[in-house]
Design a protein around this nucleic acid. Structure first.
Lengths: 244, 244
DNA sequence: ACCTATCATGTAACATTTTACAAAGGATAG
DNA sequence: CTATCCTTTGTAAAATGTTACATGATAGGT
């Protein structure tokens, strides 16, 4: 009798706790842990170029720079290492990922492969809306040809990203998307090392428009061909051979 | 916020150290760190079913089971979380990944997508040798049809894996291979939850032989079709609809 | 009026997370 | 080659939060 009462009570407590958990889960912010914050801070530092490729750093220095204790910084480093963003040198420190030819080729190749898959899925699901993407690309191309503004490169990078993210948006699979996201972080580091030079804007936008046309023609094969052409041109611009 | 990073060593010093590191890098990562050992132990426990899907565990308990201190175990858990092998519940413990329909579908779908890409690359590189794979598959199929042995399921799983690994072997990209490997670990957990029943052996081997035939015909399109058919049949066998 | 089930509050045990410190390994300078 | 300093790595303990349980109060029914 008493036992039954205890069990009922326990279940009620659990349900109450679970409900509270769900309420907070809906708030989409379950992470106030320091290691999480340190990791996002590390990502931000990587993204805005505060930490650049092939730099050597020590853990206390990074902790000071990020404003987190060393233990949290350590966890963040370990997590970044799992995504190949940094490489820890045992008993010495760590280096930001290199952006040598092999790494750059691998990152860009992976991006192209996943985006090709994204486009295949996009097209098998229906006819995607491309008018907005095409418009922004044509506007940027026109500006680059006639009256290039001051921060053209920055906006070109944003426009570039919009198409790539659109194609990756076809990846209706949480794990494929995770893999794409991790690769996207690596590419951020690469793009901080290899600037988007103004001379590259026009050909890049032309290649992008070719991709958009191919997607608009609803041909997955044609789209993949244009994606791969864009990959080859990007690597050629950086002086990297297309094959390992 | 001003972010100041101190680079303690000169570039020349770093390069010297890096060169030495590369020399040692040929020695294939001599990792005697406890956290590495704990992670591989965790992976082994997952692989041999000592830890099963959706189980709740606490860190001290796992540390005791694995024979490592809690700190190293914690690092291993964190790393496993980054690969979606476990989910940590803050301040409570962690659960092994669920093998519900969505997760199972995502893992299998990702495997099929990456293997399809692997086959495309394999075929664009040349004519792969398939005689050994075909022989082992036909032998197993023949045994399953005529005189099934005791540990047929176990050997079927191994043969199954041999083809999947062969296709993934075409992934000549370190990051794509990394993503495949992480997904492979997740599938291990799934396969411990969803047994490879004897009745599945014959149809699975037939589907595999169809894939082998398609690859042998040097047609990437035909191969992809067979890979996707195998995916659909596997999901159907587990009672999971093919679309989310 | 008494008994009982439900709810609320507080407390103790337990696990994670953080902080602090000792140990071990490697690099630098003389 | 050796001594010293600096860094990572490992260990322990404090702190923070969560869960389960116990006690007491309240409302409703007999």
């Amino acid at each position: 009798m008493l036992l039954i009462l205890y069990i009922r009570r326990s279940i009620a407590d659990f349900l109450k706790a679970d409900q509270r958990k769900n309420e907070r889960g809906a708030m989409k912010l379950p992470d106030d842990l320091q290691s999480e914050q340190a990791f996002t801070a590390l990502l931000a530092a990587l993204r805005m170029g505060k930490l650049r490729s092939s730099e050597f750093h020590t853990m206390p220095a990074l902790a000071e720079a990020l404003g987190f204790p060393v233990a949290a910084t350590r966890e963040a480093i370990k997590r970044a290492e799992a995504q190949s963003l940094v490489e820890v040198l045992p008993k010495r420190g760590f280096v930001i990922m290199s952006t040598g030819p092999e790494t750059t080729r691998a990152c860009m190749d992976m991006r192209a492969a996943l985006e090709a898959e994204g486009v295949r899925r996009l097209l098998s699901a229906g006819r995607p809306a491309l008018s907005h993407l095409r418009a922004t690309h044509e506007a940027l191309l026109d500006e680059a040809r006639t009256h290039p503004g001051a921060d053209l490169s920055r906006r070109a990078l944003a426009t570039d990203l919009s198409l790539h993210d659109f194609m990756a948006g076809g990846l209706d699979n949480i794990f494929l998307r995770q893999a794409y996201e991790a690769n996207r972080n690596r590419i951020t580091v690469i793009q901080n090392a290899r600037a988007f030079l103004p001379d590259r804007v026009i050909p890049a936008m032309e290649e992008h428009l070719a991709i958009i046309d191919a997607i608009d023609s609803a041909s997955a094969e044609a789209s993949v061909i244009e994606i791969e052409r864009h990959l080859r041109q990007t690597l050629r611009w950086w002086g990297i051979s297309a094959v390992g």
